[in-house]
Design a protein around this nucleic acid. Structure first.
Lengths: 187, 187
DNA sequence: CCGTCGATGTACCATCCGGTACATGGACTA
DNA sequence: TAGTCCATGTACCGGATGGTACATCGACGG
């Protein structure tokens, strides 16, 4: 099937880049890491930037999958929030998350191949997370705020976890946050 | 004075890198952006990595200065938290913060020239922020958690602000967080 | 059994890279 | 004024880079 080899190649490139980052990897190094030649990457993706654009799409897809998994939790919102953190804090996901934040950094500098990432990195999450808070009884405005805060806090905690590895403390902080943000209005 | 030109040169390099990032800038491009030749950067900093290491030290220093400024607020902790966010959300700081997160991303991949950054990016903040919560009456364990959560939430909100620019919504979210995290135990 | 076409290998290209060698300026010092 | 030392310019190096040209392989369809 056409494009089959291409998809498999992209898989291997993404796997390699999760472990090594892309900022300091040349096209040839990426090719070697994926078990092919730089010639093949150019053939399938057109250019180095073309490859990176596909990698970004793939990481976006994985985010969307994580988002879909979020919906299938229990109906206790604190428990949903806890499960979500437990899932994200899985050490097996660390390489993927390092890559995510690396792409995020490049997106902040406006690289054109990060365009779809910029558009979806926040927007894709707001709807479903807002919905969670609406179900808790918050009005629309308040739910929007809490959703945005929840997304931010989770990503901030993840950044901390990835650089310090202080799992217990950050588990406790995430748990605390889940309780704070789901509790009824404090003022 | 010896090293004077070097310091001025570093200033100009950092200014250039705040606007353009460093991941995709060659030594020669950085030099041109700083109004000098790549020869001079090698002369003063030894190598490209040597320059980046100095840039990291500089960004660390700026963080330390921001931390020092934090201490000099009012004695109302909610107000301190609000002022802190207001300061960070200043659009004039955006380029510096983009550079901060770019370094963070490289630190996650263990680049050796980010070593001091890795060591201080969280550790430098814990003490003073913990102190804030202790003064609010939380015990040591709880203060440590809340400090870590506060740092994470702030950075997460900043990441969101830098990519979406949704200032009003994120101001509201930061304000909400300040109230939640400083309120007495909810459980 | 042959032609087409996706996939791949080899070899090459101009350009740019980080880094070095060497000469020189220019200020301050003895 | 002669010497010293930081700073800088010019010119160069070997090697790596992203990208291309061209030949070839192999499977599948006529």
């Amino acid at each position: 099937m056409a494009g089959d080899a291409r998809a498999a190649l992209l898989d291997r490139c993404v796997a390699f880049l999760k472990e090594n980052g892309f900022s300091e990897q040349s096209l040839r190094e990426i090719a070697a890491g994926a078990g092919t030649s730089h010639r093949m990457l150019i053939y399938h993706f057109g250019s180095r930037e073309g490859l990176l654009a596909e990698v970004v799409r793939r990481v976006e897809d994985e985010q969307r999958a994580a988002l879909a998994a979020l919906a299938t939790g229990s109906d206790d919102p604190v428990e949903v929030s806890r499960q979500f953190w437990r899932r994200l804090a899985d050490p097996a996901l660390a390489p993927a998350e390092r890559l995510f934040f690396e792409i995020y950094a490049h997106a902040l500098h406006g690289r054109s191949w990060t365009e779809p990432f910029r558009a979806s990195v926040v927007a894709a999450w707001t709807g479903p997370v807002e919905e969670l808070f609406v179900r808790l009884g918050f009005d629309e405005t308040e739910s929007r705020r809490r959703a945005r805060l929840g997304l931010a806090a989770t990503r901030g905690l993840l950044l901390d976890l990835l650089v310090t590895g202080d799992r217990e403390l950050l588990d406790a902080a995430a748990d605390l946050f889940a309780r704070l943000v789901t509790a009824p209005r404090s003022q």
